[in-house]
Design a protein around this nucleic acid. Structure first.
Length: 398
RNA sequence: GUGGCGGUAGCUCAGUCGGUAGAGCCCCGGGUUGUGGUCCCGGUGGUCGGGGGUUCGAGUCCCCUCCGCCACCCCA
C-alpha cells in the first residue's frame, strides 16, 4: 500500500457516520438547549497564543505542538485545544463588550504530537464548551450538568466524575510553598519517581497514586492537598458549585488532588472518566480559567469550560450501529433502457426533494436489485418502459 | 520520546522444518425463488506493510524503517 493516513490520524468512513452523528447531533442539541451558541476558529493560530496560555512548562507546549513557520516567517501552531482560540476570538471581536457571559461551543479537530494509541490520536475531535465573562459558580455546575446529560442521553452509564478546586492566585502560591516544604521535609519517605515529580511539577506528585509503593502512598496521604488549602473565596465558590451539582442531580466524587495540565486553570476543575479505555480513560476534562483572557491582554475576565474527546466518547458507547436513512427510490435500468430519460426523471424527483439513485456500475438486473436493498431503497422501480418513469415522477414528484 | 507485542485479499484470519499463498465474509456473474433477500454454483481480488541481507530458494531467518496496539509520560 502506497499511502496511508498519517500516523495518529484516521478516516471517518461513511459506515461510521451514523454513530458519529448520533454523538455530535445530540451534543449540538444540548448546547442549544443550555444556551450555548456555535463558534468556529482557525485550525492554526499564532504559536505564542498557546505558549502563553498553556504554560511554557506544560507537556503540550514542551513536546506536543504541531508548529511550523509559514512563508511569511510567522510561527504558527495547529491548535492543541480550543479554549485559548475561543478566548482570543472573544477578545478580538469585542464579545467582552456584549452581554455577559458569552456561552459558546465548537466541535472541531485538535492536534497534539504524542505517541498514538487506541483513543489517542494526533488529530482528534473535541466538543469544547465555554462560558466566558462570568464567575458565577452556577456556570461551572451547568457545564458539568450538560456533559453529564450528554453521556446519559447517549446511553453511557459506566463513568464517574471527579471534581476539585485548585484555588486561585490568592491561595495557590501559598499552597505550593506549603507543599514544597512538606516534600522537602519528607523526601526520605518518597520514591525516586515522586521526588522527580516534586522537582518538575509538584502538583502532580499525587498522580497515579495507586501504582506507588505502599509506604509512599501512606506518606503522600499526609501531605497537604490543594483541594483542602483554599482561601475563603475559593472555598465559597466551590461550595456553590457542589450545592448546585447536588441540586441538579449530578453525582460526583471529590478528588482533592485532581489538577489540570494547562496553566490557565483556576478554582473548579473536573474530569469525566469513562469505562475501560486503558490509560486513556479521561473522556472529558474542564475547569475554570479566570486569568486566561487577561493573560491574552484583555480585561480581567472570568471563564469556565470543558473539552470532550469525540473518539473517546465513541469508544465508551455501545457498538450498536444506528441504521442509515436509506433512499426513497432506486431505479433498475435493464440493458437498453433510456438512461437519458432516467436522468431527467431523477432530476425532477430530486428537485421535488425525493432522494433517488440508480446503477452506475453496469450491473445485471439482479445486481441492481441487490444494490437497491443495500442502499435501503423504500421503492424500487424497473425502468422497462417510458410509462414507468412517468408514473413515478407523477406520483412522487408533485 | 523510551520499552514490549504485532502487520498475509477491502474485512476477520490460517499458512507445518525455509520449497513459488489459502479460507470465511464482502464484491461481480449465474442457478433457484415471489425479478431483492435466503440457498446453491462460479468468478474477480495479494509487491505477504516497505527496503536491504542470508540462502539454490524467504510470508517464514537477520538488520533497518513505516504503521497499529500495550505500558510509561501525558492527556480528550
Amino acid at each position: 500500500m502506497k499511502f496511508e493516513a498519517p500516523r495518529g490520524t484516521h478516516d471517518i468512513l461513511p459506515s461510521e457516520q451514523p454513530r458519529w452523528r448520533r454523538v455530535t447531533q445530540e451534543a449540538e442539541r444540548l448546547c442549544a438547549l443550555y444556551g450555548y451558541r456555535p463558534i468556529q476558529t482557525p485550525v492554526f493560530e499564532d504559536t505564542e497564543l498557546f505558549a502563553r496560555t498553556s504554560g511554557a512548562g506544560s507537556d503540550v507546549v514542551q513536546k506536543e505542538m504541531y508548529s511550523f513557520t509559514d512563508r511569511g516567517g510567522r510561527s504558527l501552531t495547529l491548535r492543541p485545544e480550543a479554549t485559548a482560540p475561543i478566548a482570543r476570538a472573544y477578545l478580538e471581536h469585542g464579545l467582552h463588550r456584549e452581554g455577559q457571559p458569552q456561552k459558546l461551543y465548537t466541535i472541531a479537530p485538535m492536534y497534539r504530537y504524542a505517541a498514538p494509541q487506541r483513543g489517542r490520536f494526533r488529530e482528534h475531535w473535541q466538543l469544547s464548551v465555554e462560558a466566558i465573562g462570568s464567575g458565577d459558580a452556577a456556570l461551572d455546575a451547568e457545564l458539568i450538568h450538560l456533559y453529564d446529560t450528554l453521556l446519559r442521553n447517549l446511553g453511557v452509564d459506566e463513568y464517574r466524575l471527579e471534581v476539585n478546586s485548585i484555588g486561585d492566585s490568592a491561595c495557590r502560591p501559598a499552597y505550593l510553598e506549603q507543599l514544597g516544604d512538606w516534600l522537602r521535609t519528607h523526601e526520605p519517605r518518597l520514591d525516586e519517581e515522586t521526588r522527580a515529580k516534586a522537582q518538575t511539577n509538584p502538583l502532580r506528585v499525587f498522580d497515579n497514586i495507586d501504582a506507588k509503593p505502599p509506604e509512599v502512598r501512606a506518606a503522600l496521604a499526609e501531605a497537604p492537598k490543594i483541594g483542602e488549602a483554599l482561601c475563603a473565596e475559593c472555598r465559597a465558590h466551590f461550595g456553590d458549585v457542589r450545592r448546585t451539582l447536588d441540586a441538579t442531580g449530578v453525582a460526583y466524587e471529590l478528588q482533592p488532588t485532581l489538577v489540570r495540565g494547562l496553566d490557565y486553570y483556576t478554582r473548579t476543575t473536573w474530569e469525566f472518566v469513562g469505562p475501560a479505555l486503558g490509560a486513556q480513560s479521561s473522556i472529558s476534562g474542564g475547569g475554570r480559567y479566570d486569568g486566561l483572557v487577561e493573560a491574552l491582554g484583555g480585561p480581567a475576565t472570568p471563564g469556565v469550560g470543558f473539552g470532550a474527546g469525540i473518539e473517546r466518547l465513541l469508544l465508551a458507547l455501545d457498538e450498536t450501529p444506528s441504521a442509515d436513512g436509506g433512499i426513497d427510490v432506486f431505479f433498475v435500468a435493464p440493458e437498453g433502457a433510456d438512461r437519458t430519460a432516467l436522468a431527467a426523471a431523477m432530476a425532477a424527483l430530486r428537485r421535488a426533494g425525493v432522494s433517488c439513485d440508480m446503477d452506475y456500475a453496469g450491473r445485471s438486473v439482479r445486481g441492481q436489485r441487490t444494490q437497491a436493498s443495500r442502499l435501503g431503497a423504500r421503492r424500487t422501480v424497473v425502468v422497462d418502459s417510458p410509462q414507468a418513469l412517468e408514473t413515478v415522477v407523477r406520483e412522487l414528484g408533485g
